[in-house]
Amino acid sequence: MRRKQNFWDEIQFIDRRWLYLVLGVFLVLGLNLKCAVSNVCAEEGKDFYATVMKVPEGGTVLIQSDWTTSTRGESQGHLESLLRILMTKRVKFLIYTFADPQAPQVWRNVIRVINEERESQNLPVYRPWVDYIDVGYFANAEGSSIAVRNDIRRFFSRQVKDDKGINRSIFESPVMTKINKVGDADLFVIVTASATLDVAVQRLSDRVNMAAMVTGVIGPTALTFYQSGQLKGVAIGLKGVYDTEYMMANGLNTPGPDGKIVVEYDRSEAPVPKITEGKTLARGASYIVALHFALGLVIFAVVVGNIAMFASRAANKGGKRR
């Protein structure tokens, strides 16, 4: 190991655990700082919001929820904001996963929490069978997606308990009565942290309108699909969560109290309304300050590290000359 000769060397060889500690302190500070962050929403996020808001009241959305607690920081915010929009618009949904057997328990927790939140606000809660159907986990994303493409009624031909506790085919439920093929769904939304996005786009994007909510890691792949029109809109990472919440609170092309439009959307000349009931700014809004702190710290550390490297080289060269 190189010997530390001066201050700049000390900076370069600082114990990484100090950096972790500083990062942790910054994140906790950011989480506890309650302040509004102004936002410029990403174009793909605006398209995502506009696409979801186009689904008519009483319509049906297919949700493929392929995430577990390992990406809770991003995907839970995604699913929460999506469900809040659907519940406000009284849109019904079928939810399932092709990715992980742990995923169903995770979304069941999210639905329960949002229902409790709505109940506390005297808003109608979403009931299984009447408002949504939960069909759980299916192995083999490739084979299952093909089966959905070919014959959705046969693939999901299973019985669940109706609102009276009697086993009935899910296609007798108000959620699924009009669904004879996958294209009959008003929208297909995949909330994912993995390559099941590719599998779904490859097998279903030519049959049904598709949008995605993905983690920052999957974001670049999703953007390619978005640019080519295979996805109608994408919410990416924590920024995507905050964008969605921000649009839920402000709408698109919708004037605020001062008459100014907060979020402009040039793909539509008409306003896309904001969400008028329940929570809008939630998980994304409470995490975004901490994310800014963390990214600011990284930029600072990179700049200081580079200055230290050049300064250390210059100092050591000078020392040799002497």
Binding site: L23, G24, L27, V28, G30, L31, N32, S70, T71, R72, G73, E74, Q76, T215, G216, V217, G219, P220, I236, G237, L238, K239, S286, Y287, A290, L291, A294, L295, V298
Partner: peptide, 22 residues
Amino acid sequence: IFGSTVMARFALAIDRLSFIFV
């Protein structure tokens, strides 16, 4: 792409700290 991945990792750390401190 790397920047997007870094942002994703931070989001996970923020969520864990929120789990503990909130």
